[in-house]
């Protein structure tokens, strides 16, 4: 029996499965992405199971299942006893291969959509900082950013992620911060893949500096433009990596 007052698509969404299965694969994906992009480096130790369950806000069973998958696919290994725990197993070549697979699996539309959302939140953050009159606070953010001197993609992604998160924080909006954290977890590591390339790293970081300078001078529109350019450059790189990855797959399957 249909309820004609409600939109059936909206109602269906309410009853979409929440199941533990979905949580397990989201946790797997997040950890896999982190390993594939070097955010979690070979030999890094993960927090303990209880700590993970607490931080992800899921049950211990869910965490254990996710970690089990990662061990089964040789992304993690465990050590017992003192100094034990789960450690990242992959070496950088394996990580690159993982990354290619991950990128190849995404459709062009998915990637562009994620980038659109990322930009929307970034723009919202900048406009909110400006509306609140808090541009001066960005001087300290700029100081921290300028001092950072990452020498590889993984380190650069950490700096970029830190900057984006810190900016969200400066907006004084809890909601925006949570949205930034969410999109960063879902897509941040992939979006900023381009930071592996030294030249691209220089361009993107220069645009970040421009964004901060323009914000501090009160030119929000110019800041948003700079941020947009950085995202576009990185997006192009991601899409071309994806084309390469798909071509490799086709060649390997011959």
């Amino acid at each position: 029996m249909e309820d004609s007052r409600s939109n059936s698509a909206v109602t269906a969404a309410i009853y979409a499965p929440i199941g533990e299965k979905a949580l397990v694969s989201r946790i797997r994906q997040r950890l896999e992405d982190a390993i594939a992009t070097g955010v979690l480096a070979p030999g890094d130790r993960l927090p303990g199971e209880t700590a993970l369950a607490s931080r992800f806000r899921v049950s211990l069973v869910t965490v254990r299942e996710a970690l089990q998958h990662l061990r089964a696919t040789n992304l993690l290994y465990t050590k017992q006893g003192r100094g034990g725990g789960s450690f990242v197993a992959v070496d950088s070549r394996h990580a690159s291969a993982l990354l290619e697979q991950r990128i190849a699996a995404l459709s062009r539309a998915e990637i562009t959509d994620l980038a659109t959302y990322y930009r929307t939140i970034a723009d919202g953050v900048l406009r909110t900082i400006s509306a609140m009159g808090l541009e001066e606070n960005l001087c300290a953010v700029r100081e921290t950013f300028i001092r950072a001197d990452p020498t590889d993609g993984a380190a650069a992604r950490s700096v970029q992620g830190g900057l984006d998160l810190r900016l969200a924080g400066e907006s004084q909006s809890v909601r925006l911060v949570h949205e930034q954290i969410r999109i960063q977890n879902d897509f941040g590591a992939l979006l900023w893949i381009g930071l592996d390339d030294a030249e691209l790293r220089d361009s993107i970081f220069a645009l970040n500096r421009t964004m901060l300078d323009e914000m501090i001078s009160g030119h929000t529109d110019a800041a948003i433009t700079a941020r947009g350019e950085a995202v576009t450059i990185s997006l192009r790189w991601l899409l071309s990596r994806r084309n390469d990855a798909q071509r490799h797959e086709r060649e390997n399957n011959r």
Binding site: A51, R55, N137, A140, V141, E143, T144, F145, R147, A148, S158, V159, G161, G162, L165, R166, G169, V177, I181
Partner: peptide, 19 residues
Amino acid sequence: DLTELGTYQAGLEDIEWYR
């Protein structure tokens, strides 16, 4: 480290209440 924002803190020294 446990706060998502804290994971990326480049330095406590830049924060106003310390600085």
